[in-house]
Amino acid sequence: MTSRVMLVSPAISGALREARFDDGCPLDATGAARARSAAGSLPAADRMLASPTVRCRETASALGLDATAVAALAGLDVGRWRGRTLAELGADEPQAVAEWLADPAAAPHGGESVHRLCARVGVWLEEAARLPGRTLAVVEPEVVRAATVRVLGAPESAFWRIDVAPLVATEFSGRAGRWNVRLGSALGPAERSPG
């Protein structure tokens, strides 16, 4: 049985635009409009899921998906850093930021480490691999990074070297525990048939 998982990153929000750790802010007007214009551009899916964040749920809705929020697909819990920018943290806690970026097991913010995120997403992927058909999920960029690291068998230090733009689909397909990855298909306006 071939498993298919498509992960879609959320549209732009104020936090994403400001390079601020997610603090529950909604999509901005541009992000919502872009997601609405891409509605209908995704393939049919047997399961539609979303990270429980506001921007992922709003993106799924704007894309016309009736997605169920799944805790296992939550973004990285950055603890007390929530709502702050990396620039602010670099000025206030340079040692903690350096440790966090260098060591996947570090969690100086009191939240979840990159290592734990990769493990959590890896478990979810193993479960998704046992389901027939296609799973489509709108997830935070760090969930896409964690899934990519896992399926490629890359070291967790590679997590920070993967860029995930807004409204991009990353596809995983495979069987017998071996995955293939198709990176970075930008979502655009759905093609409408004439008439």
Rank of each mutant, 00 (worst) to 15 (best):
M1L: 00
M1Q: 06
M1C: 02
T2D: 05
L7C: 07
V8M: 07
S9C: 01
P10A: 00
P10R: 00
P10V: 00
G14I: 03
G14F: 02
L16F: 06
L16T: 10
R17V: 01
A19C: 07
A19N: 13
A19R: 13
R20W: 05
G24S: 08
G24E: 10
D28A: 00
D28W: 00
T30N: 01
A32M: 04
A33E: 06
R34F: 02
R34H: 01
A35Q: 03
A38R: 10
G40Y: 08
G40N: 15
S41R: 12
L42T: 04
P43M: 03
A45H: 06
D46T: 03
L49A: 05
A50I: 07
T53N: 02
V54R: 14
R57F: 10
T59P: 02
A60Y: 06
A60I: 04
A60M: 03
S61Y: 10
A62C: 12
L63D: 04
G64P: 08
G64S: 09
D66E: 11
A67K: 12
V70N: 04
A71C: 11
A71Q: 15
A74H: 13
A74D: 12
G75A: 14
L76H: 15
D77A: 12
R80Q: 08
W81Y: 04
T85M: 12
T85H: 05
E88W: 06
G90T: 07
A91F: 04
E93Y: 01
A96H: 01
A98D: 03
E99I: 06
E99L: 13
E99W: 15
W100L: 01
P104M: 08
A105L: 15
A106M: 15
A106W: 15
A107S: 13
P108H: 03
H109R: 06
E112K: 14
S113C: 09
S113A: 14
S113Q: 11
V114L: 13
L117V: 13
C118R: 14
A119W: 08
A119G: 08
R120Y: 10
R120L: 07
R120H: 09
V121G: 03
G122Y: 05
V123G: 06
W124A: 12
E126F: 03
E126Y: 04
A128D: 00
A129E: 02
A129C: 01
L131T: 00
P132D: 05
R134E: 14
A137W: 01
A137T: 04
V139Y: 03
E140H: 10
E140D: 11
P141C: 08
P141Y: 09
V143R: 08
A146L: 15
T148N: 08
V149E: 11
L152F: 02
L152Q: 04
A154T: 09
F159L: 14
F159P: 09
W160S: 12
I162F: 09
D163G: 15
V164E: 07
L167S: 03
L167P: 05
V168M: 13
A169Q: 14
A169F: 05
T170R: 03
G174W: 04
R175C: 07
R175N: 05
G177L: 01
N180C: 09
V181Y: 02
R182D: 09
R182Y: 06
L183R: 08
S185C: 11
G188C: 14
P189C: 14
A190G: 11
P194G: 10
G195P: 09
G195M: 10
G195I: 11
